[in-house]
Simulated assay, not measured.
Amino acid sequence: MRPAHICLAVLVAAVWGVNFTVIEVGLGHFPPLLFSALRFLVAALPAVFFVGRPKVAWKWIVAVGLVLGVAKFGLLFIGMDAGMPAGLSSLVLQIQAVFTALIAFAVLGERPTRVRLSGMGVALCGVGLAAVDEGTAGPLGAFALVIAAAACWGLSNVLTRKASPPDSLNFMVWVSTVPVLPLLGLSLLTEGPSRDLAALRALDWQGAGVVVYVAWITTVFGFGAWGWLLHRHPASTVAPFSLLVPVFGMSSAALFLGESVSPLRWAATALLVGGVALTSLVPGPRRVHVADAPAREQVGEPA
């Protein structure tokens, strides 16, 4: 890779890692489901008018929109609102690589290699250590919600592979149109119209900036730049940069939110990142079908 392309890959990882800290700040301004709805609303508008018509069938856009947008991000935002630390969330969410491999085996018949199975085991040990560490400092229910979010992300990855979108940015923008109304409806039902209206009436520059960051910087720029890199370099060259996401996530949370990182959490980080590396980056048996290409485009987007 050219130095400029390496810098871009690191920048995307940094943007995605810092995103968890930004989400934590945003949850101080909005209820979690309303915040998630605003994220997708701003990501979709006005970008949907500039990316062209959808390039895959609507059934895939709706399916990924519901699983990724409503389920994954809804669970993640609720889990973080319930007490899951931003830095730890950026780490634990990477277990999506294990869920992706398991669901791909069940749905697509992609049998993982022994090395990948070993990687899954190492990553799960890392999650176990992280759970033990979180159990001494925070609510395990919130931890479980983030694990569930990672499982939904894994399912959305497999759905995206089946969809085979030729343009990752076009696909993500159209996917962003789907979760807005379901998330708004769930927010009105569970968080209440009075709480939602109070959050919108109290909107200030910081709250607006948070929404712009998670929508345009993380989603539109992040996906666009990542897809651009994947169209110019092999996935095995680009994908390792996604392992920097929890590094930036935990570092920014420690710097801006004052989150501490215990020795046990560092050990969990080493195990989880190492396991995800084995699971995601070691080549598996090749399958010749049209879904191979977009599988590359789904490596690394965290939140």
Results as ranks from 00 to 15, higher is better:
Q298N: 11
E110V: 13
Q206P: 00
S187M: 07
C7K: 00
V15H: 07
I23T: 14
G83V: 04
R114P: 01
R232L: 11
F241Y: 15
R286N: 10
A86H: 04
M120S: 12
S156C: 05
L188M: 13
L88V: 15
G126V: 15
M120V: 11
G258Y: 02
G300K: 05
L75E: 10
V175A: 08
A163K: 13
P246H: 01
A295W: 10
N19P: 07
K59E: 09
L8W: 03
G154Y: 10
I23A: 09
G109F: 04
L8S: 01
I23W: 09
M172W: 04
R286A: 14
V122F: 06
E259W: 10
R232Y: 02
L145T: 00
G192M: 04
R39P: 09
G222L: 07
P139D: 08
P165E: 00
V245G: 03
A47L: 13
M120R: 10
L229T: 09
I147Y: 08
G154K: 08
V70R: 12
I61G: 03
P193N: 00
Y213M: 08
G128V: 12
R296N: 13
A267I: 10
C125A: 15
A253T: 08
G138S: 14
H233F: 14
W266F: 13
V180N: 08
A4V: 14
G65C: 10
P46D: 09
P46L: 03
A270C: 05
A144W: 07
L169H: 01
A202L: 07
S251R: 08
A268H: 07
V146C: 04
A97W: 02
P302W: 12
T218V: 09
A104T: 08
V212G: 04
L129F: 12
R232K: 14
A295K: 13
P112R: 10
V238A: 06
V56D: 04
V288C: 00
R39T: 03
H233Q: 11
A86D: 05
P246C: 02
R161I: 03
G28V: 07
I78F: 02
K59T: 08
I147P: 01
S236C: 01
F256Y: 12
A9Y: 06
T190Q: 14
S280M: 13
V158F: 11
I78Q: 13
S194Q: 15
A131D: 06
L88H: 01
T219D: 01
L117W: 12
F241M: 01
P240D: 06
P302H: 13
L75W: 01
V220I: 14
A199I: 11
A82E: 09
A57P: 07
A202K: 08
L88G: 00
S260A: 14
M172T: 15
L243D: 09
L186R: 01
L272E: 00
E134M: 14
